[in-house]
């Protein structure tokens, strides 16, 4: 079960978050902003302490949930939390990145680095996660989802 999706811009600001399940932690928007920028800072620290280049935090696991982070080459971070043991995390983040490139960046009213308020994007993200919840972590889900999209 997926819990929460966050998108963090390259300066560490939370630009998007969405509950993916009723079990997701109920926090107010200021708390999410704080969590987003704290995660960004920890990610930067993880990147700068080892010798040589590091990718920063990619995955994190606790006794109750798992977190997965996809940092794009342009510096945007897509962060997904899920119940422990949820299988497909990274491929879903790549699909969300694709949706972001289609429905956020091509929206002429969206300013880069600013909070994302794009109806189509939210709708497609919701649909994507619903399709995963109903079909399970089936490899076909991706295919089904994208054929419906086109």
């Amino acid at each position: 079960m997926y819990l929460q999706l966050m998108i963090i811009n390259k300066s560490g600001g939370l630009v998007y978050n969405q509950d993916l399940s009723p079990q997701a932690a109920q926090l107010d928007s200021n708390d999410w902003l704080r969590i987003g920028s704290t995660f960004h800072s920890l990610h930067e620290i993880a990147r700068s302490i080892p010798p040589g280049r590091s990718s920063g935090i990619v995955a994190l696991e606790t006794s109750s949930f798992a977190l997965r982070c996809l940092e794009t080459i342009t510096g945007i971070k897509f962060v997904l939390t899920a119940e422990r043991g949820t299988q497909v995390l990274e491929p879903v983040l790549r699909m969300v990145y694709e949706l972001y490139s289609d429905y956020v960046l091509k929206n002429p009213f969206h300013d880069l680095e600013m909070p994302i308020r794009c109806r189509l994007f939210t709708e497609h993200v919701t649909e994507l996660f619903e399709s995963f919840h109903t079909t399970g972590t089936n490899a076909n889900a991706r295919h089904q989802f994208f054929t419906r999209l086109r």
């Binding site: 080459i73 342009t74 694709e98 960046l105 091509k106």
Partner: peptide
């Protein structure tokens, strides 16, 4: 260009810089 780069990275399988 500043926007299209993300579409490129998302869809072209460019995982590493």
């Amino acid at each position: 260009g500043t926007r299209i780069i993300d579409e490129f990275l998302a869809k072209s399988n460019q995982r590493e810089p």
